[in-house]
């Protein structure tokens, strides 16, 4: 049992963006522990993606292909990757923390009698062993975790936590492998992915966004945020609970389950900053956070912070903007 196996995610030959970051995490971990890194890609289009993966500084690339992996299923992915992990015997398996990984990875780890260290944000090496960080309590606290079990151990990494590696010159060997899968053990029947009805706004194109969260308390108070948005020439966005309540349409939701935005200015009003929201906006140019709790994780991401009652601060800000514009 040795080395690191990075399981990347792609669809039809196109990478999931966190895949390169997982590869980066695997390579950093390999360097820190002084062990070899292999990378794997599975599903329809795997051979196309594998050729690209071979340009990165990995020892070997494995394309895992099977007619039973054409359309993603949790059972199919867990069984195929269990087969691979048993064949390859890696010490650590690194994955991107995507929705797909959230769907199958615990099943895979459980089949091998292991727990998954989900959504890691970093690691350091202490006494030759990796200590991983992950967030708890929706980002309010951080925990240091260690594995107590021998390999294979499983880690998934949070989007935006590790740097994607540079592609090198030397091409790694690519090997295509076909797992032994029994169709009868794949119990999910998936249908084609779809989007809901047409969107009226495209937040991803907005230059400025005022986003509102739970702190606004009532639907009637949304007018405060709306007025601020108008004074700034911004679109109105929201965190998940606001859209769940039906106060704003889903298309205005920012975060992992909604839009990923990167406007020049992002003003977060009454948003505490759960991980799921932060991943959708932390690439914004300038981030302003207004929140009554000075310890709220949103301030982690903010350039400018106002720790105060939004019901006092937001009207004052709208007023100040109007004054500044004359």
């Amino acid at each position: 049992m040795s080395g690191i196996l990075v399981i990347t995610e792609q669809s039809g030959g196109a990478w999931h963006r966190v895949s390169q970051e997982a590869l980066g995490a695997g390579l950093e971990l390999g360097r820190a522990l002084g062990v070899a890194v292999r990378a794997c890609v599975y599903g329809s289009g795997a051979s196309v993606a594998a050729a690209e993966l071979a340009a990165y500084p990995v020892e070997q690339v494995i394309a895992l292909e099977s007619p039973l992996l054409e359309a993603y299923t949790a059972d199919g992915a867990a069984l195929a990757l269990e087969w691979l992990v048993r064949e390859e015997q890696p010490e650590v398996v690194v994955m991107p923390h995507t929705y797909q990984v959230r769907d199958y990875a615990s099943r895979l780890a459980t089949r091998l009698g292991r727990a998954l260290l989900a959504d890691a944000t970093g690691f350091r090496v202490e006494d030759g062993a990796a200590v991983f960080q992950r967030q708890l309590f929706q980002g309010k606290l951080t925990g240091d975790f260690v594995f107590e079990t021998p390999g294979p151990n499983f880690v998934s990494v949070q989007a935006g936590s590790f740097r994607a590696p540079e592609a090198g010159a030397a091409a790694a060997a690519v090997e295509t492998r076909t797992p032994e899968l029994d169709a009868a053990r794949i119990r999910q029947t998936p249908e084609a992915p779809f989007r809901e009805a047409d969107r009226a706004v495209d937040l991803t194109a907005a230059e400025r966004i005022v986003a509102v969260g739970r702190g606004i308390r009532e639907e009637g108070n949304l007018a405060l945020a709306q007025e601020l948005a108008e004074a700034l020439g911004a679109e109105l966005g929201a965190s998940r609970p606001i859209c769940d309540n039906g106060w704003l349409p889903m298309e205005r939701q920012v975060g992992s389950s909604g839009q990923t935005v990167a406007p020049k200015l992002y003003v977060a009003v009454g948003i505490s900053g759960a991980i799921q929201h932060l991943v959708g906006m932390k690439g914004s140019g300038c981030i302003v956070a207004i929140n009554k709790d000075a310890d709220a994780p949103i301030f982690e991401a903010a350039d400018y912070g106002i720790a105060g009652d939004l019901f006092d601060v937001v009207p004052a800000l709208t007023e100040a903007l109007k004054k500044a514009r004359g």
Partner: peptide, 27 residues
């Protein structure tokens, strides 16, 4: 198989400028 060694407040990676004063001054 997985042990939490230590729980702590996250270190700030970004220098957030906090603005002080009354709401009007902050604005």
């Amino acid at each position: 198989g997985l042990r939490l060694k230590r729980l702590y407040q996250p270190q700030r990676v970004k220098q957030t400028q906090f603005l002080a004063g009354t709401p009007a001054e902050q604005a």
